[in-house]
Design a protein around this nucleic acid. Structure first.
Lengths: 169, 169
DNA sequence: CTTGGAAAGTCAACAACGCTGACGTAAAAT
DNA sequence: ATTTTACGTCAGCGTTGTTGACTTTCCAAG
């Protein structure tokens, strides 16, 4: 073997050889898959005159019932003006309820109404259906890998939110 | 074991038991990870006054040099008006070159200029760095699973584009 | 040669959803 | 009592998506 040959691939888990081609493929997979990920909810939202931002807000209000605006702001990573616009329409339309806090009356605690919970379920049913199909097609080991890579890709602050949600907080 | 207990989990690969919790975790992982996925390029693009749409256009022009506008349209899944606006600024700024086709002079063939290739590389270097870090942290088996799930999540038309790119067409 | 239609470009208008900055109110914290 | 925090809101702007209409160019079929 001539010493001008490329470095051999290490099969160990610490020294992982990754070509630009492999990384590019991963990048394009993320791009194309995210489109599929949002496609089904987008179609439903369109019928109600809502957008992705409304879905995201409803999702996390459902996940953390009674959460405050500031907490939601931190999870979603947008400005309060941007969130407020979305939140206002959801409250006006009777999908979200905003209650003044007991301990701290500056805070607003957000909950889904019955109608809001119904739409949220319709949206998440559609999104879960696609995720279930993908998980079933790929198998349990692939699912574990999928999550490992995604978690390693998150910004630390977002990973913290993700883990907090995982534990049901 | 009382018969009121939940159905046992099947360990086979065809009968895969998936709880809503597992699916939700996958959904939230996609949401948070995609933010990380775009974070680094977004920071760079901001300095040049460009957005994600410019990045996407440059990425696929780099991947398929000489591609036509229509092909790019199909890959990106946007309207020609939306793409044209982005493309026009890139051409004006000397990052993309548009050449009239030889065989069919209606077609425009798109290529990156030297300056365009330089910015594209800066962007994809940043994006690859994060992907590499995530891949290394998760390990080769996780990477395989990551791609399997993402591919199973794509819309058929996008999967076709993805595979076409994979083979270098 | 004429004509139909495809490919591309352009203009106008609009919507969703990010952003900044500024201002106001209420309440908690110091 | 003053400052800070949480929230809402107004105004304005930018990117990026949309539809609709119109023109030009040009290949290809009649």
């Amino acid at each position: 073997m001539p010493d001008s040959a490329p470095a051999p691939i290490q099969s160990g888990e610490s020294l992982l050889f990754l070509t630009d081609e492999q990384l590019r493929k991963g990048i394009e997979a993320m791009f194309f898959a995210y489109r599929g990920f949002t496609a089904d909810p987008d179609r439903i939202l369109e019928q109600y005159g809502y957008g992705r931002a409304h879905h995201r807000a409803m999702h996390f209000i459902h996940r953390v019932p009674g959460t405050t605006v500031n907490n939601l702001l931190s999870i979603l990573g947008v400005t309060k003006q941007s969130l407020n616009r979305v939140l206002r329409t959801l409250i006006e339309d009777g999908l979200v309820q905003s209650k003044v806090g007991n301990r701290d009356k500056r805070e607003r605690h957000l909950c889904l109404t019955e109608a809001g919970a119904a739409l949220e379920q319709q949206l998440s049913d559609a999104q879960r259906a696609r995720m279930r199909k993908a998980f079933r097609a790929a198998g349990p080991e692939a699912v574990a890998g999928f999550r490992q890579v995604l978690e390693a890709m998150m910004e630390p602050e977002m990973l913290a939110h993700y883990n907090r949600l995982k534990d049901g907080g």
